[in-house]
Amino acid sequence: MATHPDPSGETLTERQQAVLDAVLALMVEQGGDLTMTAVARRASCSKETLYKWFGDREGLLTATVRWQASKVRAGNYDRQRLDAFALRDSLIRFAANWLGVISSPTSIALNRFAIAQAGARGSNLGAIMLANGRFAIGERLKPVLDAGREAGLIAFDDTETAFRTFIGLVGRDVQIRLLLGDRLNLAATEIERDAARATDQFLTLYGTEKTAPGRNPTNA
């Protein structure tokens, strides 16, 4: 059976992935007020299996957040031979991937539920979302930024600040508008265009002469 590693280092089987997809589907349909019984029914498995795999409801939600966040990855690159073209391509791939994920109905439902639960007494979902969503995604992109700096392609003092700048340029007001119900047209071609534009804006801010937008990266 095929497996998929999640950001925590654990390995999910196809069956476990299907269970987490069932959680996301339920969130899209009815919000986050779901029970282990409802998940078991939708995923055609027993509650005992859910408890065995994920622990309690919070463990199931944590695994769901990790599963959704695992879909956001930077493009492939060779750290030892990173050039301007590869850096730009990797950043564009990450940006397009992230925009595609956050604009999906599943991510919108998951984020709306997390926001609703953030102020609830005894709820840890907000912390779970930050640790396994935003912070985990940051740890996936920061090595790309650091590699670019080591290669002399970009220059910055603080990786976290550079990461936040990049995410801000990519996301703009898209996520908040989607969470508030705005029906944005985010077709694949538009996502790709926005990702490239944000990347070039980032390289304008942090790039060296080798990565100046408008130049052919292969000639850098």
Rank of each mutant, 00 (worst) to 15 (best):
T159Y: 09
I92K: 04
A198N: 02
L169H: 03
E160F: 15
G100Y: 12
N111V: 02
I154H: 09
E160A: 14
A109S: 08
L203C: 09
N185Y: 12
P105H: 13
A136Q: 03
I167G: 09
A162R: 04
D89S: 10
R79C: 06
R93S: 10
L141P: 05
R134A: 05
I102R: 09
R193S: 11
I115S: 12
F166R: 02
G138M: 11
L99I: 06
F163N: 02
W98E: 06
G181H: 08
I167V: 11
I108R: 14
R183P: 01
D78F: 05
R121F: 15
V144Q: 07
L203Y: 10
R121P: 03
S104P: 06
A162Q: 04
A109P: 05
F166T: 00
S104Q: 09
V174A: 12
N185A: 14
D158C: 10
V144R: 08
A198M: 02
R197E: 04
R121M: 14
R93M: 03
G126Q: 01
R79I: 04
R93K: 07
R177Q: 10
G100F: 14
E192R: 15
D158G: 05
R140V: 10
A162T: 00
A84W: 10
R134K: 07
G138K: 09
D182A: 12
R140W: 13
D200K: 09
A95W: 01
R149Q: 02
A147L: 02
E192M: 14
A95R: 02
I108Q: 15
G119A: 12
F202C: 00
M129F: 15
T199E: 04
L110N: 01
F113M: 15
L82K: 01
A84Q: 06
G126A: 06
P143K: 13
F113S: 15
D182R: 10
S103T: 12
D146Q: 15
R140S: 09
D173H: 12
L180Y: 05
A114E: 00
G148I: 07
T161L: 11
L186G: 02
N111R: 11
L91M: 12
R193D: 03
L145V: 06
F163E: 03
G126D: 01
A114L: 01
I108M: 14
S107D: 01
F94P: 00
L141D: 04
A136G: 02
P105Q: 12
Q201F: 13
R81D: 04
A95F: 02
K142S: 02
G119F: 11
I176L: 15
D200Y: 08
L91G: 08
D194T: 05
A86V: 05
F94R: 01
D83Q: 08
A195W: 03
P105G: 11
A187P: 00
R164E: 11
A109G: 06
A187L: 08
Q201H: 13
R140D: 09
L153Q: 04
E139K: 08
A187I: 03
A151F: 08
I154E: 05
I154A: 13
